Simulated assay, not measured.
Amino acid sequence: MHVFQPVDPVDIEQGAYTFDGTKFLVTAGSGGKVNTTTAKWGGAGFLWNKRVVYIFLRGGRYTSELLDESGEFSLSFLNQQEFRGAFKYLEAVSGRAEDKIAGARLTVNYDDGIPFIDEADNVITAKVLYKKEFREDGFVDKSLVDEFEKNGEYHIVYVGEIKKIMIR
């Protein structure tokens, strides 16, 4: 008889990029405009016979608007300590009001037309397959609404087919 041993989920989440509550940047562009936003929620998996990433952005974000227009996005994973000032700046400023990527002293690069942050250690580019806004009636655990979906500003889940993974 074999005995199962417990495994800490952190042990299987380690790799070139991780979705463990650590901030990363979601970047999209359309019509010559590019914007990025910070995110903490996401993951990678296998869905519809495709390798996918899924991310969650608040509705009304400028990056979401550009992502919806282009149908493509990138995830850029940067060193949290080295770029903590850039993350703070990106969280405080709207891309509608100014070029916040330049203001954060970051550089946009492109892979097959998809913008990404060049200072990243790891980048994933993806094509949107699915998008859906959360609604209160979908929550089984209603406490999550009060804690994470405040003021009726719900997150949108995006599922994207991975086009490329780039690692420095």
Rank of each mutant, 00 (worst) to 15 (best):
S64G: 12
S64N: 09
S64M: 00
S64Y: 01
S64D: 14
L66N: 03
L66E: 03
L66V: 06
L66P: 01
L66G: 08
L67D: 01
D68K: 14
D68I: 01
E69G: 01
E69T: 04
E69P: 03
E69A: 10
S70H: 02
S70F: 00
S70C: 06
G71P: 06
G71D: 08
E72P: 02
E72M: 12
F73A: 07
F73T: 02
F73H: 04
S74G: 05
S74A: 13
S74Y: 03
S74V: 07
L75R: 03
L75F: 02
L75W: 03
L75H: 01
L75A: 06
S76K: 04
F77D: 06
F77Y: 11
F77C: 05
F77G: 04
L78S: 09
L78N: 05
L78M: 07
L78T: 06
L78I: 10
N79W: 07
N79L: 10
Q80T: 14
Q80R: 06
Q80C: 13
Q80N: 08
Q80M: 14
Q81C: 08
Q81V: 08
Q81P: 02
E82C: 07
E82Q: 13
F83Q: 05
F83L: 03
F83S: 04
F83G: 02
F83Y: 15
R84D: 08
R84T: 15
R84H: 15
F87T: 02
F87L: 13
K88N: 13
Y89V: 06
Y89G: 05
Y89E: 10
L90W: 06
L90T: 05
L90E: 03
E91W: 01
E91Q: 11
A92W: 03
A92M: 01
A92C: 02
A92D: 10
S94Q: 09
S94P: 09
S94N: 11
G95D: 00
G95I: 04
R96E: 11
R96W: 15
R96H: 12
R96A: 01
R96N: 04
A97K: 06
A97N: 07
A97F: 00
